[in-house]
Write a protein that binds this DNA or RNA. Structure first.
Lengths: 124, 124
DNA sequence: TGATTATATGAACATATGATCAGATATTAC
DNA sequence: GTAATATCTGATCATATGTTCATATAATCA
């Protein structure tokens, strides 16, 4: 005995089926900006690659340089550098130069929080 | 004046450059299982698509059915159904049937926590 | 029962992504 | 200055991903 009954919207010249028009409207009102949403999506996506995730997981403990990470991951230094750039673009890691060596570390507390909550979720 | 000085490991018959052997070893000791890591990566990756992210963002407020989400996103119901399956596979959303209509909602508190922290990070 | 509604699924195709390779840049040592 | 070290970057290519389309399943209604 469902109370759901589909209505139909004319949208962009197309007939769109909707069961709860109010909920769709409410969702539309509460959306964040496209810009923020894209950046948020990119943030998760960048954490969503196993090798990049290994990098940030490793950086939870101590800062590391490209060649250490390459040795740890079993990847070329070039590949690691490419991935670090993506992580840096989204402010997931930061770098610090000491002579020839560049040390990478997590950018801020949000990153480890994301990791901790994600781990809790996966482990339950 | 850096104290960093590269050593070389013989690994799998290949010469691997390492600056901080201790850090690499420590990182190796502290790794989580491949299984957990892959699942964690998948979790972020699934949140990392703009359309799927729009879905979970919308579900923060109220549960919705496939056709509502399709209308909200401007996508086909089939496309939404495919994405909901991926979200469900990783326990990011759960579903509840009421007659013909299936309502989707966020699976647990971890999901909204991940969204909140991600948003904080993106906004700072 | 058969017809309708709501959602799910499999195959296919265009686009996006990550590793590799070659070469560029930046810092230090001589 | 040149040589060596550490990292970065652009192009390429094989693989992965998301949408579409056609079709299948599941529940309700006449």
């Amino acid at each position: 005995m469902s109370s759901a009954k589909a209505k139909f919207l004319e949208e962009d010249g197309c007939r769109v089926r909707v069961v709860h028009l109010d909920r769709v409207e409410q969702a539309r009102k509460k959306t964040i900006s496209e810009n923020e949403l894209d950046r948020l999506a990119l943030t998760y996506k960048v954490m969503g690659d196993p090798n990049r995730l290994k990098i940030v997981m490793a950086l939870r403990n101590v800062e590391m340089c490209v060649c250490d990470l390459a040795a740890f991951l079993g990847l070329s230094e070039s590949a690691v550098s490419h991935q670090l750039r993506r992580l840096k673009d989204l402010a997931l890691v930061k770098k610090r130069r000491d002579g020839q060596v560049i040390y990478y570390a997590l950018d801020d507390e949000h990153v480890s929080q994301l990791l901790n909550i994600g781990l809790e979720h996966v482990r339950e």
